[in-house]
């Protein structure tokens, strides 16, 4: 893959539009519930307001608590360099970058968990423990999905295994692709703390997972965390959408398709949240197991189909 200076532009949609996904999810849920809902741009306003504020720190907290949000966001930002946005190729692409992508997200999680444990609060410890557990169960499923995609395209770089669909091989691939996409959607819901795994709108600490981990953060730190989770949602959605992107066609069409797909995923998340209740915590590993089974089935279909 040749590196051009304009490849750096590929991160711009993610940087600029990721909070919009949260706005769309919120709007979808409000409309489904018959409410008017917050404006689409509300997440941007929240972020700006938080960036302008001061901060309150717990007396127990050390430098770990203060540095965690910035490090977590930095890891997600670095991971965003590896995804292309429609026609814009990723700035960083090499054979094996999918492993780096997954481990950068792990670093971001580790930083937030350490920050939560630093507060000494039982609530935050509880959230941290659940987040660590569910992410650990999600990890094998995510790698299986990556393995399926890598197998289909015979490549090991995210930009090479995503967005390279062509009409000729489409029909042969679609069954395994659909299974892998379903698995990835389940992982997306779990990793981004959405219903049915976690409820970002709950008001009871005992039932929270991700939200309770960041209870003590305030001001710019909280803004970093909120922006980081929006960006993470964008990254997972981008992988999901890019699985179905065609490599041919004019650039503006594929950009429009990409963005349309991204907003479509946000609507889908919103609809899922509107029609489903949360699972009991003990059921979440089973959901992630289901994701792994679906991805495993996709792999079996591919292997049984022989090598292209």
């Amino acid at each position: 893959m040749t590196a051009h200076w304009w490849n750096a532009l590929a991160v711009l949609p993610a940087l600029l539009l990721s909070p919009l996904l949260l706005g769309i999810i919120g709007k979808t849920k409000a409309l489904a519930a018959g409410r008017k809902g917050a404006p689409l741009l509300q997440p941007y306003r929240d972020l700006l307001r938080l960036l302008g504020k001061g901060a309150v720190y717990g007396r127990t907290a050390t430098w770990v608590f203060r540095a965690a949000p910035a490090i977590s966001l930095a890891a997600i930002l670095t991971a965003s360099l590896m995804l292309s946005a429609g026609p814009l190729a990723a700035p960083l692409a090499f054979s094996g970058d999918l492993v780096l992508f997954a481990y950068l997200l792990a670093l971001s999680r580790f930083a937030l968990i350490a920050g939560a444990m630093d507060t000494g609060s039982a609530f935050e410890g509880m959230g941290a423990s659940r987040e660590a557990a569910f992410s650990a169960f999600a990890e094998p499923a995510f790698f299986l999905v990556l393995g399926v995609l890598a197998w289909e395209e015979k490549a090991l770089s995210l930009s090479a295994i995503l967005g390279g669909a062509d009409v000729a091989s489409w029909s042969a691939k679609i069954p395994s692709l659909a299974l892998a996409a379903t698995a990835l959607f389940l992982i997306l819901l779990a990793e981004n703390s959405r219903i049915p795994v976690d409820d970002p709108a709950t008001h009871l600490e005992l039932t929270m997972i991700h939200e309770v981990m960041v209870l003590d953060h305030s001001g710019p730190d909280l803004a970093f965390i909120l922006y980081g989770s929006a960006l993470k949602l964008w990254l997972f959605s981008a992988v999901l959408v890019s699985m179905f992107m065609f490599s041919s066609g004019p650039a503006w069409v594929s950009m429009a398709l990409f963005l349309g797909g991204m907003f479509g995923v946000a609507v889908l998340v919103g609809v899922t949240e509107s029609v489903m209740a949360r699972l009991r915590l003990g059921r979440v590993p089973q959901l992630l197991g289901l994701a792994a089974v679906l991805a495993g089935l996709a792999a079996l279909l591919l292997m049984a189909g022989g090598r292209p």
Binding site: V64, A102, R109, F110, M117, D118, G125, A136, F142
Partner: peptide, 22 residues
């Protein structure tokens, strides 16, 4: 990948419980 996820949880626990908090 599973080993990686579990190791992260384990060291989040060890460093969190021993060195962080009260």
């Amino acid at each position: 990948a599973l080993v990686g996820g579990l190791a992260l949880a384990c060291f989040a626990k060890a460093s969190g419980v021993v060195f962080l908090g009260e």
